[in-house]
Design a protein around this nucleic acid. Structure first.
Length: 282
DNA sequence: CACTAAACCTGGGAGC
DNA sequence: TGCTCCCAGGTTTAGT
């Protein structure tokens, strides 16, 4: 599921709905979905939620105790806020709050994780610390691309997906961003000129902010805190549109595996640059 | 260090 | 209807 726009949507809803509430309990039906040392769990229970923020695709919940809660939804994770109710088939864990509301963590494929850790451990969490700049920050993305692209021979799409380089982009928005920048996803990263990298950087916030406005993309599983789907895919430029006509030039949208991921692009708007190395026209 | 493939999981859809 | 195969929004790890 979720890339930056989906996680941002949920985070904003959490800010409105759970900040100030107290955590009554945190439990798991599928043990691997919840990582929590006994001490950290003790600290979290009874604590009041003081802050909810997003970093890349990670949700960070801070409390007035020594504990923090990190949530990564991975592929099919959902956070749903409701009243006490019977867990449904895919509920893996839940956080019970002091007003009888329940934050349910549903996750069909069981890849997602809720981590309860000390604030100190959260601050030096390896995944968090290694993240690149936020994909919505065009200037920072431009710097990151300039730094990493020259020594990467892999497709530019792989670079966009690398969370160490830029945080928050996943498979759907990588395709959308590359279309917007007019760059073929299979282009060797090191072959791109500085102006084209700059164009790519500015396409990131352009696409992601539009997707946030539309509350993200629902391919199948993604839902926001209320259970509502996102509507970005109804305006998607290329992703999921194999065989359909390009909205810009009417060519047929292509589909193939690039960087090991299903990839959509317009063969006309996103032409392959000719042999990369040393070509001043790329 | 850069890159690829496999692993972690379940279930929907396509094709036969 | 039922079976098999392929695919999926992400990240980590093992291996080249």
């Amino acid at each position: 599921m979720p890339e930056l726009p989906e996680v941002e949507t949920i985070t904003r809803q959490l800010v409105h709905s759970v900040v100030g509430k107290r955590i009554i309990n945190i439990t798991a039906r599928w043990p691997r979905s919840l990582t929590a040392a006994p001490q950290d769990l003790d600290d979290a229970i009874g604590a009041r939620i003081t802050r909810v923020e997003r970093r890349g695709k990670l949700i960070i919940i801070s409390t007035d105790s020594d504990s923090s809660v990190l949530i990564h939804l991975r592929m099919t994770g959902q956070l749903l806020l409701g009243v006490l109710e019977k867990p449904d088939q895919h509920e893996r864990a839940r956080i019970v709050l002091d007003d009888t509301s329940v934050l349910r963590f549903n996750d069909q494929r069981k890849f997602g994780r809720i981590q309860v850790i000390s604030q100190e451990a959260a601050a030096r969490d390896p995944f968090l610390v290694a993240l690149g700049p936020e994909a919505t920050d065009a200037a920072a993305v431009a710097r990151a691309l300039r730094r990493h692209a020259p020594r990467r021979r892999s497709p530019i799409k792989a670079l966009l997906l690398d969370q160490h380089v830029i945080a928050g982009i996943g498979n759907i928005y990588a395709d959308e961003i590359l279309f917007t920048a007019g760059i073929n996803p299979a282009t060797e990263a090191s072959a791109l000129s500085i102006p084209r990298l700059r164009r790519l950087a500015s396409a990131c916030p352009e696409i992601l902010n539009q997707a946030i406005d539309l509350r993200g993309s629902t391919l199948r599983d993604y839902r926001d805190l209320d259970g509502t789907s996102g509507t970005y895919l109804s305006v998607a430029r290329v992703h999921g549109r194999k065989g359909q006509t390009c909205r810009r030039c009417s060519a047929t949208i292509a589909y193939a595996s690039v960087a090991g991921r299903g990839t959509y692009w317009c063969p006309s708007c996103q032409r392959r640059t000719r042999s990369a190395l040393g070509n001043p026209f790329t």
